[in-house]
């Protein structure tokens, strides 16, 4: 399956407005607000223990050579433990200068599609996410346009995220450092 493809057509897709679509959409909207608000401890609560969180690097290639994503090199290549460590840095250290003072971020999550997952309580989702980042008194924004492919699993009356692949639309990123989550 090519990386940008939707999951296989044999999977059931939950149309916009159906119950599962609404529930997953609600989860993604809640997550975006939590991250925009900088409530990182609450964000960790939304992640499964086994989460794989990967944002591959990429190169510009011709159409016949695919999409140019690395299989194994990332801007982020994270486990639950490393994400916890990243959150601890932001919350516990006064010397995490990338976020001191904090960036102002806005995650615009849209074009959400939802499919059945591999297990009965899992769903696949993909979404477009535009992350706007503003630092200090700079009037302009760093814009990070991505598509995200998620696997979520039911947990209580909501979900946990157990897999996220973030495909960024830039080969050369226009922001000097990544301290924010997608």
């Amino acid at each position: 399956m090519a990386l940008h493809d939707a999951p296989a057509e044999t999977r059931h897709r939950w149309r916009v407005g159906t119950e599962a679509h609404n529930e997953v959409l609600d989860f993604l909207i809640e997550e975006a607000w939590i991250l925009d608000d900088g409530r990182y401890a609450a964000w960790l609560e939304m992640l499964g223990e086994e989460i794989e969180y990967f944002m591959p690097t990429r190169s510009t290639v011709y159409r016949n050579d695919g999409l140019g994503f690395s299989e194994n090199m990332g801007h982020y290549d994270e486990t639950r433990k490393s994400l916890e460590l990243r959150v601890r840095r932001l919350l516990e250290s006064t010397s995490a200068w990338t976020e001191a003072p904090p960036s102002r971020t806005r995650r615009l999550v849209t074009n959400v599609q939802v499919w059945d997952g591999d297990a009965p309580d899992e769903y696949l989702a993909r979404s477009a996410c535009l992350l706007l980042r503003n630092r200090i008194d700079n009037p302009t924004f760093d814009m990070l346009s991505t598509s995200r492919r998620d696997t979520v699993r039911r947990s209580g009356d909501s979900f946990v995220l157990i897999k996220r692949r973030i495909e960024i639309d830039q080969a050369t990123l226009g922001t000097p450092n990544l301290s924010m989550f997608f």
Partner: peptide, 20 residues
């Protein structure tokens, strides 16, 4: 490679702050 990404480069704990 995960340790390299965590510590260095665009999202690394060390070099995030250098780039700041």
């Amino acid at each position: 490679r995960q340790t390299s990404v965590l510590m260095t480069g665009i999202s690394g704990f060390i070099e995030q702050d250098d780039a700041e």
